[in-house]
Each structure stands twice: as C-alpha cells, then as structure tokens.
Nucleic acid binder design. Structure first.
Length: 479
RNA sequence: GGCCCCGUCGUCUAGCGGUUAGGACAUCUGGUUCUCAUCCAGAAAAUCGCGGGUUCGAAUCCCGCCGGGGUCACCA
C-alpha cells in the first residue's frame, strides 16, 4: 500500500476564506488519519492573477489552524519544487510526449476567430466544442501559440468518495489548452502531472471542478497516469444567500477570525461541522478526535451555510474551558493598553471574571476597561434603567451615601463583602434590583459587568469608594 | 441555453424500508439574591421540495417535475 498523500493546492490570487480552508482541513485530516503526508503546493501559473503577499496569507492561515505540511514552498522535499512556476520544464517535457504521440497540437486561431466560433455556436443554441474546429494541418508548435490537448471523446463514469457514482457523456470532453502562449501550463494540465509526480493518493477539491473531470479523465488516459481517489466536498455557502463563499460576496478572510480572537480549535470545529459529522449527537470535537474519526465517506453532499452564531458559541465554549493563566497568555494582544499599569495577577483575575461572557478575544477591552481605568459618568445608564429611572436622583444619592458608610468599614474580602451588601439591603430596605444595579453602575459605568461583589472586591476598596463618591458629587451638582 | 451536482426545523445536521422524524446553534419562557453572560429546566420550530409509482409499510427504493447551485476561459 502506498502511503496516503493529500495536498492543498491554492492559487495565490488573494486571501484564504473559510471555504478554501475547509478543503485544506479535510485533506489534512485524511492525511493525519492515515498517518500519511499533507503537502502544500502553490498553483501560480496565472501570472496575471497572482497577488503579492497571497502565499504569506495562505501560509499564515494554515498555521493559525495548525494545519502543518511536510512538503511545501517553504519545506523542501523529494518531489519539489512545490511552486508550479518553478516547474515549467517538467510540464514542457510532458507536453512534448503528447505532441510525439499526436495527442497535442498548436492552436492556430486568433482570439477573434475563437470568439466568432463561440458566438456562432451560441446563436445556434449549441454547445461550443473546440474539437469540432480542429485545424486540418496545424502548424508545428513553436511555443508562440497555445498548445491544445487532442481529446478522445467518450462517456465516462467515475467514483467520488463523497458524491458516489458520477458520469458524463462525450459532450463533456473537449480539446483544451494545456500550455498557454506565455509558456505557462494551465491548471487543467499541470495539476494532473504534479499530483502524479508528487504521488498524491487522494485528490480533494471543491465542487466547481466536477464539470471538468471528464476532460481530466481523458488526459489521464493519454498521459498513462493512474487515477487518484477523487473526493469532492460540497461548497461552503454564504450566511445570507445560497451562493458559495467568495471574496466578492464579502466572505471574511480566515485571518480575520484569528484577528477577532477565534481560537483555532473553535474554527476547526466550526469548519469541519460544515458538511461532516460522525453520526452521533456530539458537537464538540478536539482536533485529535477529528483525526481519529474523520472519514470522507461521511461528508455531506449538499452545500452548507457558514454560521457565525455557531462559531461564536463554539468559541465561547473553548474560552470557558481555558484556565485563567491560559486565557491570560492568549489575551496579550487584546488587552487594553491601560492594563499595562497592573500586575499579571490582577489582569488574570479580571479575565477570570469576564471569561464566561467572552465570545471572542477582541471583546476583552469593552468587557474589562473599567477594571483598568476610571470612566466618565454615563448618567444614561441610570436614566435608561427600568427601575432606577423611577427613583428620584436625591433618593439615589442617599442610597449611595448609605452604601459608602457601610462599605467603608469592610476589608473587601469577597465573603465579607457579600455579608456587607446583604446588611446594606436590610438597612436600606431595598431590592437587590435597585441597590446592586445602582452600585454596579456607579463602579463600572458599564451596561453589564460580572456580579457586583466579585467586581468591587477585585476593584478594591479605594477605587470602589472613589467611584461611588464621584457619582454622589455628580448627583449633588446636577441637582 | 447545454451538461453536471444538490434538496430533512431559520441554520448545521441524525436518519440508510417500520422512529411520537432525534440533536446542536439561533429564537422565546422560567429558575440561579442586580445587569450581561454561564449553567439548568422547558417551549416553539421540518405535512422530510412537489407529484406519481414499488411495497403490508417510504424521509429512506424508482420515475417525472419543480427549486437551488456549479460549469461551459490562453482562471484556478
């Protein structure tokens, strides 16, 4: 048995989105499951569409999710180079074989002539097939014309690990360009050679290539290259419509999710669930479990909409499983600058308090800033509060004064604070709804925060009392 | 338009001839001394795209239709 070798072969035409990275994930999981190899190959044969920095983006996206490769543009291997633009002589060698066998010929048509033929076919409502217009005496190929594959049309039936039996008639097989007039090969040609030379066993790619497979099958035959196993995952669709994810549709980059603080485990879990499950009711899978359980034959046939709600839920789940130190380490790039004035223990405690309401790391500043800095009084929080807005400002002021009096003698240990707040409720004869909301707003100036006792215990006596007094002053002045 | 693929709650899905069609996200309700969240309990949500067959019995098998998508480049 040959070892399983899968590959991810993107073209560097822009940033990777969730659809592309899922294909990579599936291929990676197959390789890991079989204890084989996963290869990264860059398909940069379109010199016009190549985008600077795209390879870096691809590599960074894969690294973010921990999808590692054993051979690639940055890792030499026995079948390199792994960048197609560096393999041109190989493609020409194979192209020459086809010419020698009479299975490739120079295309003598100009672009205008071709367009004309296509228009004609369109007007006759017939599909355009180049092979109906093969030149009788093609010129010898000198590299200045495109080189075309001379097809041998027939009906094909083939197997796909995901989609099952697929078939198409001879009308799907045509003469297509294998070497462009700039000397670069087309995808249709060179991916077959590369997959063969690189000993790829499973060709996992997205659904838009299905209509081309009969053409590929014809070429495999002409090149005497054995078929790999085909597996075609369904498209990943936009959240809001039924079209596949694309940059044009405003799909987020994979790295955008990294920037917003989606943990790799959550992202992997989300992406794999688009089209795959193990048949149980499990929703959460560690990467190790996925490697063990993943199976292409259980991949869905129909497209799946990307769902950011579910991604956030998963991410929250993984964040909650972190301990305070782990969360602290992951948060360094997200903490507000003002946190630098505090020691790590304090910052860790803050993160511990907000952990269960954190959906993604970029939320950290809005959830924690009041722990690190004094915020201006936002009276709207009281005016728009459904119980506090019904109480007169002077009554609120009196409640705050009573609170300061009670809290002043406390040591702000959590347990003692809870007792203290309870006493305060009794003394003022108030509902927690009123009193706790009031103190919470005074001390955080935030619409939401962790529970009151925990919050002010961590904040400390000095800041808590200072902030309450500040609100008292404000209320006195505005009266 | 030709060819090809797909079609179960709003979304992701379980289901492979006999189920009260199950789970998860989202939504809504209640509980956890305040808010937000977590957690717990519960509700609502799919006449299995439609119509025919086959069968004692169909979401599951067959056919037709409809709907959606993909593809018809010197792009991948």
């Amino acid at each position: 048995m040959r070892p399983t070798r899968t590959r991810f072969a993107p073209s560097p035409t822009g940033a990777l989105h969730a659809g592309a990275i899922r294909t990579a994930l599936f291929a990676w999981l197959v390789a890991k499951h079989d204890k084989g190899q996963f290869i990264l190959r860059i398909e940069d044969t379109d010199q016009v569409r190549n985008v600077e920095g795209a390879v870096d983006n691809i590599i960074a996206s894969l690294k973010y999710l921990g999808l590692d490769w054993s051979e690639g543009p940055d890792i030499a291997g026995p079948y390199g180079p792994y960048i197609q633009s560096q393999r041109l002589p190989i493609y020409h060698q194979w192209a020459n074989k086809l010419i020698e066998n009479g299975r490739a010929y120079a295309d003598p048509y100009t672009k205008d002539q071709l367009d004309q033929l296509r228009d004609q076919a369109k007007q006759q409502k017939k599909p355009f097939l180049f092979r109906n217009h093969r030149p009788d005496n093609p010129p010898k190929w000198d590299g200045s014309q495109p080189l075309r594959f001379k097809s041998d049309p027939k009906t094909y039936q083939w197997n796909d690990l995901v989609l099952g039996k697929l078939s198409a008639g001879p009308e799907s097989v045509d003469d297509f360009i294998i070497i462009k007039s700039d000397g670069y090969p087309t995808y249709n040609f060179c991916h077959i050679i590369d997959d063969h030379l690189m000993e790829i066993t499973h060709l996992i790619r997205s659904q838009e290539f299905i209509p081309s497979v009969p053409k590929f099958l014809n070429l495999y035959e002409a090149l005497k290259i054995p078929l790999p196993i085909f597996a075609t995952p369904p498209p990943v669709l936009n959240q809001d419509n039924d079209r596949k994810l694309s940059k044009r549709e405003g799909a987020k980059q994979v790295l955008d999710y990294q920037r917003m603080g989606i943990l790799p485990e959550a992202m992997i879990n989300m992406i794999v669930s688009l089209g795959w499950n193990d048949g149980t009711t499990d929703e959460i899978y560690s990467t190790e479990q996925l490697i063990e359980k993943f199976d292409l034959s259980r991949v869905q046939k129909s497209g799946a909409h990307f769902n950011e709600d579910k991604l956030l839920w998963l991410n929250g789940h993984y964040i909650r499983k972190l301990n305070d130190l782990e969360l602290f380490k992951l948060s360094t790039n997200y903490l507000p600058d003002s946190s630098k004035n505090f020691d790590d223990t304090y910052v860790q405690s803050v993160l511990g308090l907000i952990k269960e309401r954190l959906k993604y790391l970029a939320e950290i500043p809005v959830l924690t800033n009041f722990f690190f800095e004094d915020l201006p009084i936002n009276i709207k929080l009281i005016d728009e509060n459904k119980v506090l807005s019904k109480i007169s400002k002077s009554d609120l002021k009196e409640l705050l004064i009573a609170s300061v009096a009670e809290l002043e003698s406390n040591d702000f240990q959590l347990k003692n604070l809870v007792d203290c707040l309870n006493r305060l409720l009794e003394k003022t004869n108030q509902q927690p709804k009123v009193l706790f909301s009031l103190i919470r707003i005074a001390t955080t100036q935030a619409p939401a925060s962790p529970p009151l006792a925990e919050t002010i215990s961590l904040l400390g006596k000095e800041k808590t009392l200072g902030r309450i007094n500040q609100l008292i002053e404000y209320l006195v002045k505005s009266n």
